[in-house]
Write a protein that binds this DNA or RNA. Structure first.
Length: 417
DNA sequence: TGTCCACTGGAAGGGAGGGCTT
DNA sequence: AAGCCCTCCCTTCCAGTGGACA
C-alpha cells in the first residue's frame, strides 16, 4: 500500500511541476482561445468588417458562415466577438453577445430561452409559447437599447429537427418592431446544403453576408499545431514526425483542426503515461484509436433505452449472420428483447425513425434499398466495433443482461432456411 | 408492362408533463 | 383550481416507391 501511495505522490508531483511532457496541455483543447488564428486572417477580417458598425449605432448585416466541423467557424466568431466587446467597452457602447449551440439546445424554445437569459430575462424551462419568449426578448432589447449579436452555432440542427424555419424567420424580423436596440444574427452551419432547407424569405435576410470556411490543408494544420505545441509541450519533447502525422491524419478527416488538436493532446498524454521521453508517431497512432473509441463510447452511453435495445438487436443479427439486416428483422428481434426485459416496444414507424437517428450519429449505417418484388426496406449494418458496444453495455443494468440473450427469432429463421 | 412486396416517410393528432393567466 | 397553451415523444394512418418478377 505504501508503495502505491508513494507512486501516486510521484505522479502528482510530476503533474504539479508541469510534467515532463506538457508545459500547458490546456492550449491543446479546442475551446482554448489562442492569440491569433493562423490561416483564418481573411475570415476574421471579413467578419470583423461586417460587424464593425455595431460599435456605432448602426445595425449590422446578418452573417452566415458555413463549412465542415473543425474548420474554424466557431472560433473565428468567438474571436471577433470577444474583441468587438472589448472595443465596445472602451468606447462605452451598449453591446451584448450570445453564443448558442442549436444542436445542444435542441428546440426553438430552448434557443430563445437561452437568448432571453443572456439579456437577464429569467424564463421557465418550459411552458411558454415561443412567441411569448420572442416578445420578452424584444421587450428586453427595447428596454436595454442594446445591440445584441447572436451566434447560432450548428443552426442546421435546428432547422432540420423542427422541420420548419419559422424561428429563424421571426428572429430575422425582430428588428422591424424595434426602434432602439437591435439583434444581429451570425448563423453557423456544418452542412453545406443547409441553405436548401430554408424558406427564401429567411435566406434573403439571413444570408445578407456569407462566408465559406474551407477545410484546412495538411500544411495549414501543421502550422496550427506547431504554433500551439511550442507552448503546450516541454522543449524538445515532441517529435517532428508525430506532429506531421497528426496534421496528415486530421487533414484526411476533412481538414478538422479540432481532431488534429485532440490527436496531439491525447498522443502527449499516452506518451506521458508511458514515461516516454519523446512523443513519437506510434503515440499518435494509439491516440487515433483512443480518440475514436472515446467518441463512440460517449455516444453509446448517452443513448436512450429503446435505442440501446435496438442497437443490440442489430448486434445480435449481425453476429449471427455476418451480413446486413433489414428493418423487419431488426424490429422482430427488438420486440423479443423488449419482452425479455418487460418493456413495451415502440411501433415500427418509430423504430424506423430511431434507426435513422442512429445512422446520422454514425453508430449504424442504414441505406434504403429495394428488393424489387420482395419489397423496399433499409439495409442496416453496425457502424462501430461490436466489442465497443459490448464493453459499454455490459455495465448497463437493463441492457447488459440482453447481451447474453440468444434471440429465438434468429433460431427460427435459421430453421426456415 | 403491370403487379406487388415491404417497407419508407409525411402528416396529423394524442397525451404526459409543464407554466401562465384569471 | 380551471382552462389554456406550450413542447416532446410517440402512435396511427396512409400514399408513395424501386425494382424483381410474371
Amino acid at each position: 500500500m505504501n508503495i502505491h501511495l508513494s507512486q501516486l505522490d510521484v505522479i502528482f508531483d510530476r503533474i504539479l511541476s508541469g510534467g515532463d511532457v506538457f508545459r500547458d496541455r490546456n492550449l491543446l483543447r479546442h475551446d482554448y482561445m489562442p492569440q491569433n488564428l493562423p490561416h483564418r486572417e481573411s475570415q476574421i477580417e471579413r467578419l470583423g468588417s461586417v460587424l464593425a458598425p455595431a460599435l456605432t449605432k448602426d445595425r449590422v448585416s446578418n452573417f452566415f458562415a458555413y463549412g465542415k466541423t473543425g474548420t474554424g467557424k466557431t472560433i473565428v466568431a468567438k474571436f471577433v466577438l470577444e474583441r468587438l466587446v472589448r472595443k465596445a467597452g472602451q468606447y462605452n457602447r451598449a453591446l451584448q453577445t450570445a453564443h448558442v449551440n442549436c444542436r445542444l439546445a435542441g428546440t426553438n424554445y430552448r434557443v430563445v430561452a437561452d437568448l432571453c437569459r443572456r439579456l437577464g430575462v429569467q424564463v421557465p424551462f418550459t411552458g411558454l409559447a415561443v412567441g411569448e419568449l420572442l416578445d420578452r426578448l424584444k421587450e428586453a432589447l427595447k428596454k436595454q437599447k442594446t445591440a445584441f449579436l447572436v451566434v447560432l452555432d450548428e443552426i442546421d440542427a435546428l432547422v432540420k429537427r423542427s422541420e420548419d424555419d419559422s424561428l429563424l424567420y421571426e428572429l430575422t424580423r425582430i428588428n422591424e418592431a424595434l426602434s432602439e436596440g437591435w439583434i444581429g444574427l451570425i448563423g453557423i452551419s456544418n452542412d453545406l446544403h443547409f441553405k436548401d432547407f430554408l424558406d427564401p424569405r429567411v435566406l434573403s435576410s439571413l444570408g445578407e453576408e456569407e462566408l465559406v470556411f474551407k477545410p484546412y490543408s495538411s500544411d495549414e494544420l501543421y502550422d496550427i499545431l506547431q504554433e500551439r505545441s511550442t507552448q503546450a509541450f516541454q522543449h524538445g519533447v515532441l517529435d517532428e514526425g508525430a506532429l506531421r502525422l497528426c496534421a496528415a491524419l486530421a487533414a484526411r478527416e476533412h481538414g478538422d483542426a479540432r481532431r488534429a488538436l485532440d490527436l496531439l493532446r491525447v498522443a502527449g498524454e499516452i506518451g506521458e503515461r508511458d514515461r516516454s521521453p519523446r512523443i513519437l508517431e506510434k503515440h499518435v497512432g494509439e491516440a487515433q484509436q483512443k480518440v475514436e473509441h472515446d467518441r463512440v463510447t460517449e455516444v453509446l452511453s448517452s443513448l436512450p433505452l429503446h435505442s440501446r435495445v435496438l442497437l443490440l438487436s442489430v448486434l445480435h443479427l449481425e453476429s449471427a449472420r455476418k451480413e446486413s439486416s433489414v428493418t423487419g428483422d431488426v424490429y422482430e428481434v427488438y420486440r423479443e428483447l423488449c419482452s425479455v426485459v418487460r418493456m413495451e416496444p415502440l411501433t415500427q414507424r418509430r423504430v424506423s425513425g430511431l434507426l435513422n437517428e442512429l445512422d446520422i450519429m454514425g453508430i449504424l449505417n442504414a441505406r434504403v434499398v429495394s428488393f424489387g418484388r420482395y419489397g423496399r426496406t433499409k439495409k442496416i449494418r453496425l457502424g462501430v466495433e461490436p466489442r465497443t458496444i459490448t464493453a459499454t453495455f455490459s455495465v448497463d443494468e437493463i441492457v447488459g443482461g440482453l447481451l447474453e440473450h440468444a434471440p429465438k427469432y434468429l433460431h427460427r429463421q435459421r430453421q426456415l432456411n
